[in-house]
Amino acid sequence: MSNMVTFSFFQLKLLMRGYKDTAIGFILPVVMFIIFSNVFAGEMILETGFSLVDYLLPAFIFIIIINAVIVIYGQYYSVYKEQGNLLKYRLLGLDHFTISLGILLPTLIFQLLAITLLVATAIITSEVPIPFNNMPSVLLVIFLVNVFQYSLAALIFTVTTKSSGYQSIALMFFFYQMFLGGLTFPPEMFPDSIKIIVEFFNPIYYALIAFRGVWTEGDPVYLYFQELGVIIIVTAILMFVVNIITKNKRVIE
């Protein structure tokens, strides 16, 4: 436990040294919220009675999560892997779980700060309601999305050998989820042809539906067991594939 705390503080210092790059990634959703909340002002979803602006905040929270896990965490991990630092840390007595969690925890701290900033901005600029009475459901969805993004990051740095390769693929997944997952433009605005692609090939869409339900509409999380079931199943499949690839690499080595 002490090794994990020490390593996490070390990683946090590295993140703080590169605070400009990190801040840009986290401030982006705040700027986007201000812009899109003005663009979509007055637009309503007739089926639910909520406005498009009410649904923007849950979507942009997901953008922060994806950026934190796939882009920041995964990039640091892939750099350590490329430089051989993972092996060095293991020789110092740090197991794989400690190293991985030690890199992930500081990014979660930045993620929390960024979400707090985004929520505060939404309250001040658009008076978006915050589901304080439904926080257990909200936190559960956030946790599941973090685990899902971790599984994506694990798959990418398992199949890549260079940090540059990881960064290229990670950004592709980042933008794919952001633009074709309903995280920028609400899925209600997609034409039918795009909706088919989103519903069949972008699991983050189902997490978004669940998160909008528990955050904006105040629904209990169990009402979205099908949507969250998709995320859980995809996450399990990705981690299974990662485990198989990792074992095969060890056998070859």
Rank of each mutant, 00 (worst) to 15 (best):
T121C: 12
K162W: 08
M189R: 13
A122R: 00
P106S: 02
N133D: 13
M16W: 14
G182H: 03
Q11V: 12
A210H: 01
I27S: 06
V251H: 04
T107R: 07
V141W: 01
L86E: 03
T158V: 11
F10H: 12
A153M: 13
H96M: 13
Y222K: 08
T22E: 05
L91T: 13
F132N: 04
L117S: 07
T22K: 06
P203C: 08
I196V: 14
V119D: 02
K13M: 11
T184L: 15
A154L: 12
G93A: 11
V53Y: 05
L91G: 12
T246F: 10
L108D: 00
S168M: 15
G165H: 14
Y89D: 06
V147P: 00
S126T: 07
L28Y: 12
P220M: 09
L52H: 10
N38M: 15
A207N: 05
A23C: 06
G18Q: 09
L223P: 01
L56C: 05
V147E: 02
N248Y: 07
A114V: 03
F225V: 11
V71I: 15
Y73G: 03
K249M: 14
V31I: 15
V242N: 07
T22Q: 07
L87R: 10
Q83D: 13
L105Q: 02
E47R: 11
Y206F: 15
N243E: 12
Y176P: 01
F173K: 03
A68C: 07
V159C: 09
F50P: 00
N243K: 15
I115F: 01
F174P: 00
F185P: 01
I209N: 11
Y222G: 00
N38Y: 13
F173W: 11
S78L: 04
F50Q: 11
S37G: 14
M4K: 10
D21F: 11
S2L: 13
L101P: 03
A236T: 11
A170F: 04
L86Y: 01
K13D: 08
V138C: 08
I130G: 00
I27G: 00
S51G: 14
L223T: 08
L46P: 07
V147R: 02
Y224N: 02
I63D: 06
V198F: 06
F7Y: 15
T235I: 02
I244A: 05
P203L: 06
N202K: 02
V71P: 00
